[in-house]
Design a protein around this nucleic acid. Structure first.
Lengths: 369, 369
DNA sequence: ATCCGATTCGCAAACGTTTGCATTCCGGTG
DNA sequence: CACCGGAATGCAAACGTTTGCGAATCGGAT
């Protein structure tokens, strides 16, 4: 009798131990404590089979695959990306490099790129490379082997000698909002943008048109900045219009840039009747500059910007929408295509901006002519 | 003769092969083709010594360390982060989770956090978690084991039941711009912000003060939105001022939010003389709304916002600067402290906003009372 | 019954580090 | 001269996957 009791006691203890073990292995598991081997053991198969089952690669029967999946879910198993990357040789990560995030354009680009990359199961790393020093550092160190599978350079001003370093970056490179060497890229047709802006203003009857842009970091390769400038001059010439030196204002980027620039323009003996701003942010600043002077838009000055900035809507700003979301999505698609090429990956996407006419542009006042 | 020729020929070929080999190993090397073993071989030491030499861990003599460093640089060797992470068990990566990047606040936060993290040699992953579905997905899947060492949730609206999942995220969690459970966090004192705003307006002589805020995603836990609202009511009560129901306007987030809201307020039989906007973006929208109505600020309506948005400067908007850059830096410091705790890591940072008085606030017009 | 091809699965070798432990090599002390 | 402690270095076992290749299994055709 007493013996049986003791036996029973032991049996219970044994049971409890089992229960605890099970609960430890199934319930309280944090997703970092269970690995593929655990799943394999639970399923009674080899690690190799688990690996194949979870990744939809052939070589596992339907039922087995299903059972492994279930067990993995039960254990809340997640593969270790490090180990997986190490074995496969690719990381599933893409770096997005922007000059900064304070300008709407870059934030929007990053946003769109991240969204699309996320759809393909990839992760997005951000790097801000503002000044010369950071750019140097970046090109020196980022080429960290296999930190990412690819790099998207978003409208990054870049020196010629740095371009060469791109080959040594140890990852595929794609450019968004600019062209670089013969790297895959997505751009908007900046010359066409300038042309469309000028055309719109000319159509309204303007003949004295100025342009405001932010300063070009010296030494860097042609960006959209330069192209829009060139396009502007070309379009004006094509319309037979003269552009006085003073009508070309270049200033460092800042929130007051447009306001100050328009001040200078209006102080000219023969002020322009319309202004083409490099970006909507500048254009908005111009609008505010006008208000401060007690002038009205478009009666006293027509203003047109570029971007498709959300605030352009609020301020009724005529703009050339460059479809940043679309550019971003294309950029993401480009990298994906380069990383694992299904067919021949696309290498160039050129988008057209669309003119969105709002009330910041109108015919020139008859008095001003 | 001919034999010698042939011999010479072979010798030359052999030489060329050597040269090619050397050049492949020293010059044309892409930074993904050379590993620690290569460096070790070149230096005539073991892999272990190379590992120690490159990471400043003790156990390597000065001269040896120096030599290894030089050779590594020569071969342009970079450690494989995957392998290193796998062996060490930490990734050197931090995830920043934001609702979206279109609002200035989030972009600025991300920017600041990335900057600071970069200083500590860590990389930043971005995740946008906008709606319910994405949030569900995130809490289901992001907890990918060891994708990151830590996660910074930036003002993320979150459900109660999701909070529990945070324990299973498999990474340290830090909150910026909000409080969650007893997680480490950096916040600005939102009640104090509301109080300061009200106080400023009351000091100017206002008694009819309205508040405009964006809608609270239902079911989510107290965010700064709720706190500012509460603080507003409390401060008004403390000043013995009544807040009619109609003075509390809640609208979905958008570029026109402020403009529409202010329209409603001004249509009231007894319109407010001042309005406290949840954010600078809303406040700017309010300013534009006023202009459309042909009203002037602050003569017809005083407007005060919150954020310290760059455009607040442009538009001469009185605001409560919440020092986003600083918050971001603190958030980054917090994670770093949590990831590898030197002493007792800090767990809470509460910043005070500072009132920046500009011309969008002034005494109420005597007529309006 | 035998053999064959197709399918399913396991073995074990990478992938490139980090790190505890053992080993070697010093000069110096007893 | 034997011994000893500490510094410098090497060995080898992790870390957790992926994947080529061979083994086993199975139904079916000969």
């Amino acid at each position: 009798m007493s013996q049986r009791c003791v036996k029973g006691g032991y049996a219970n203890v044994y049971k409890m131990v089992i229960v605890m073990k099970v609960s430890r292995e199934t319930e309280r598991l944090l997703p970092g404590d269970v690995n593929m081997a655990d799943v394999a053991r639970h399923a009674g198969v080899s690690i190799a089979t688990v690996s194949r089952a979870l990744r939809d690669v052939p070589g596992v029967s339907g039922p087995t695959r299903l059972r492994i999946r279930e067990i993995a879910a039960e254990l809340s198993y997640v593969v270790s990306p490090e180990a997986s990357s190490l074995a496969r040789g690719s990381t599933g990560r893409v770096a997005v490099v922007v000059p900064h995030l304070s300008a709407w354009f870059y934030a929007a680009m990053l946003s769109g790129i991240q969204r699309r990359l996320h759809e393909t199961g990839r992760d997005t790393l951000v790097y801000q490379v503002s000044d010369e020093a950071e750019r140097a550092y970046f090109f020196e160190h980022l080429p960290s082997r296999r930190k990412v599978d690819a790099v998207i350079l978003v409208a990054l001003p870049i020196l010629r000698r740095e371009i060469e370093r791109l080959d040594h970056i140890g990852a595929d490179v794609v450019v968004a909002g600019g062209r670089l060497q013969n790297l895959p890229h997505v751009v908007v047709d900046d010359r066409a943008i300038a042309r469309a802006a000028v055309q719109h203003l000319v159509d309204l009857g303007h003949r004295r048109i100025a342009m405001i842009r932010t300063s070009d970091t010296e030494g860097t390769v042609a960006t959209s900045d330069v192209l829009r400038h060139e396009g502007f001059l070309a379009a004006m010439a094509a319309s037979g219009l003269d552009v006085p030196e003073a009508y070309l204002v270049t200033m460092p980027y800042g929130v007051r840039t447009g306001a100050e620039a328009v001040g200078r323009l209006l102080d000219l003996p023969a002020p322009p009747t319309a202004v083409f701003a490099y970006s909507d942010e500048i254009a908005i600043s111009v609008l505010e500059g006008l208000r401060r002077r007690g002038l009205r838009c478009p009666e006293d000055l027509s203003v047109i910007g570029v971007d498709g900035h959300p605030l352009a809507d609020l301020f009724d700003l005529t703009t050339l929408d460059q479809h940043v979301e679309q550019q971003a999505a294309h950029a993401a698609d480009l990298v994906v295509g380069v990383i694992d090429p299904h067919d021949i990956p696309q290498r160039e996407v050129v988008l057209a901006a669309t003119l969105v006419v709002r009330s910041s542009t109108g015919p020139p006042s008859t008095l001003s002519d």
